[in-house]
Nucleic acid binder design. Structure first.
Length: 372
DNA sequence: TATCCGTGGGT
DNA sequence: TACCCAAGGAT
């Protein structure tokens, strides 16, 4: 295709500017690569298990490495192959995922595992085919293709966007700048060691080219970085302003039966905390509106706790009023609620907002004793 | 294109 | 305290 003459952009690298060398980044990676449970050492001839790469990448979506590691270890030990994960009951998978957040990931992960297992148990070594699987978007498809199969796919995550914005001093704000940052990243992707390169750019963003206080002297691309020359590194990438977070309130019931069983319910499959186990309660409404005062899920001596559970979701903050009761062996839940044995073990299988409420209520309920 | 969807750590 | 941010995807 013929090159159309392009309007020069004020923040574009001049044609004679030194082009960052992927080999320099790979040399840094050979030295500085983090050891991660799903990662093979840099330069290793053997590719990592595609199942482990896929599992780690799903867990790492919008989630920090430190948070993922224990969950990855648990999953890989409990379900060592995609076939074994595919055969697992959904409620067990959701319970094992509890606390990691973005629960639609877990359901899509299981759907994906079942598709792959039914097709023979091998992940496709092709970016487009990966992209067609549930829970695998542009980033994850490129990451699996590159890391598991050493295909020269361009991974673009938040790290890569930040590194490119600085390297080329792209001053236009996100998210509008995404297509251009992707194109810049694609222009650097090497044919040699693309899997290590993909991980190297992300490691660079995670450990050197950090959002605040980047460690420019430690950067293998320090001499090539336009933002560093301009003194802009710490200010990039720029971002469009975001909306203020609203505040909501609600009521939850923590019911403890004499035998230690906890009163729970299964949430609707879609939406917030979809498909997870939760506590019965009312609607969560804007704090300025009247509180939804729901009927108890089961008759009992319900008492309001002084303490409230506070939790912050991505797009709103929540304060939960807690109503707690010890319930007799005859207690009969209504409206889909049910008892599950071993309240303390169950709390670990709840989304964090509910786990907080249970942890506030249990000591008081246990101290009160059955005869209260 | 914009909104929805969790959580925990850093500053 | 308040805000930012993280190996994003689905709709």
């Amino acid at each position: 295709m013929a090159e159309a003459p392009q309007e020069p952009r004020p923040d574009a690298p001049c044609p004679d500017a030194p082009r960052p060398d992927p080999a320099a980044l790979l040399a840094w990676y050979d030295r500085a690569a983090r050891r991660l449970p799903w990662r093979t050492p840099p330069g290793a001839a053997a590719r990592p298990d595609p199942y482990a790469v896929w599992l780690s990448e799903i867990m790492l979506q919008q989630t920090t490495v430190a948070a993922v590691i224990p969950y990855f270890q648990t999953f890989i030990r409990r379900w060592p192959t995609v076939a074994e994960l595919a055969a697992a009951p959904e409620d067990q998978v959701m319970a094992a995922w509890a606390g990691l957040g973005y629960y639609a990931r877990a359901r899509n992960m299981l759907r994906c595992a079942r598709i792959v297992a039914a097709a023979g148990g091998r992940f496709p070594a092709d970016e487009a085919a990966l992209r067609a699987l549930p829970g695998i978007g542009p980033y994850t498809a490129a990451a699996i293709a590159a890391i598991a199969f050493d295909i020269p796919a361009t991974v673009v995550d938040g790290n890569v966007e930040r590194v490119m914005a600085r390297l080329f001093a792209a001053t236009d704000p996100l998210p509008a700048a995404k297509p251009r940052l992707r194109a810049l990243a694609a222009g650097l992707t090497p044919a040699r060691r693309p899997g290590d390169y993909a991980q190297a750019v992300m490691d660079l963003g995670a450990t050197v080219c950090t959002p605040r206080k980047p460690d420019c002297p430690a950067c293998p691309w320090r001499e090539d970085c336009a933002a560093r020359r301009l003194g802009l590194a710490a200010e990039l990438p720029r971002k469009a302003p975001r909306r203020a977070r609203p505040h909501r309130r609600g009521v939850v019931f923590v019911g403890l039966r004499e035998d230690g069983a906890l009163l729970l319910e299964t949430r609707p499959p879609e939406g917030l905390l979809g498909g997870m186990t939760g506590l019965p309660g009312g609607a969560w409404r804007e704090a300025a509106e009247p509180l939804d005062d729901p009927a108890p899920p089961c008759p009992g001596d319900w008492r309001r706790l002084t303490a409230e559970a506070r939790h912050v979701f991505t797009h709103f903050a929540l304060t939960l009023e807690i109503r707690a009761a010890r319930l007799g062996p005859e207690a009969a839940p209504e409206g889909g609620a049910f008892f599950a044995p071993d309240a303390r073990a169950r709390a670990a299988e709840l989304p964090t907002v509910f786990r907080k409420a249970v942890e506030l209520a249990l000591p008081e309920l246990e101290a009160a004793g059955p005869g209260r």
